[in-house]
Design a protein around this nucleic acid. Structure first.
Lengths: 112, 112
DNA sequence: TCGTAAGTACGACGATCATCGTAGCAGATA
DNA sequence: TATCTGCTACGATGATCGTCGTACTTACGA
C-alpha cells in the first residue's frame, strides 16, 4: 500500500504495479510511441520533445496515465517536466514484459 | 491483409496481429483470467467452463474481444464453442510477450 | 518587470467499453 | 417432435477514454 510521491506527483510503488493497469497504459498507440522513444533515450526527456500528433493537453493526459500506471517517472526541472522509463521497476515486477513490448512492432509509426 | 475465417468466425492472420489491440485485449482482468486458464489447459475449452464472475452475455463479449484481437481461436463443436490460445502465433509475432504476461501476477483472482 | 515557454486544470464532446437482461437460435437428446 | 443446453443477438445503461480548446500557473530570460 506504500505510495511514493516524487516532487508532488503520484507514483505507484513497484510492488503495487498492476498488470491490467500497465497493459492498458501500453495499449494506446500514442503512449506506446512515447514509451518507445523513452526506451532509447539516454537521459530524462521533457514532455515537449516527443513526436506525438496530439494537442498539448492530450499529451499531458497520456503522460499522467503512464505515470499513474507506474510505467514512467516524472519530476519537475525548471518549467519542464522530465520523464524517465521505470524500466528496472517494471522488470522487477513483470520480468520480460517491457522487453517484449519494446521488441515488438518497432516500425509502427505514431501517425494514428 | 489476409484474414482467416474459421467456421464462420473472424480471426486475424498472424502477421496482422497488432500490439495495441493485443495489449488492450489482455488489459481486462476477466480476459486475463480466461487467458491464464486457457494457458494451463491441455485441450480446447468450451466457453462455459471458465471461472468468470460475469453474465453469459458479457462472457460472450470477452471471448469475441480475445478472438478478434488474435489471442484465442474459436471453433464450434456441437452446441459448444471451443477455445484455444493462439500461443504459437502470438509468440511468432510478439516473442516473449505472452510468457511475460502469463508469468506475471498468477495469483490475482478473478473476483474483480 | 514584462514576456515567453512548458505544462496543467477544467470542462466538454463523441466514442468506446464492460455490463446486464431478455429473447432467440442451433445441436444434441429424448 | 419436443425439450434442453450452450451460446449469440440485440438493445440499454453507466462508466471510462481519447481528444480538444481555453484559461491559468510557474519558471526562466531579456
Amino acid at each position: 500500500m506504500k505510495e511514493e510521491i516524487v516532487m508532488g506527483l503520484y507514483h505507484p510503488a513497484t510492488e503495487d504495479l498492476e498488470l491490467p493497469t500497465v497493459l492498458h497504459a501500453l495499449s494506446d498507440p500514442q503512449r506506446l510511441h512515447i514509451v518507445r522513444e523513452l526506451a532509447v533515450a539516454e537521459e530524462a526527456q521533457p514532455c515537449g520533445r516527443f513526436t506525438v500528433n496530439v494537442s498539448k493537453s492530450t499529451c499531458t493526459h497520456h503522460f499522467r496515465v503512464l505515470r499513474e500506471a507506474g510505467v514512467i517517472q516524472q519530476h519537475h526541472l525548471g518549467t519542464a517536466k522530465m520523464n524517465t522509463l521505470r524500466r528496472a521497476d517494471i522488470d522487477a515486477r513483470f520480468p520480460g514484459l517491457l522487453d517484449a513490448v519494446l521488441a515488438a512492432a518497432p516500425a509502427e509509426p505514431a501517425i494514428a
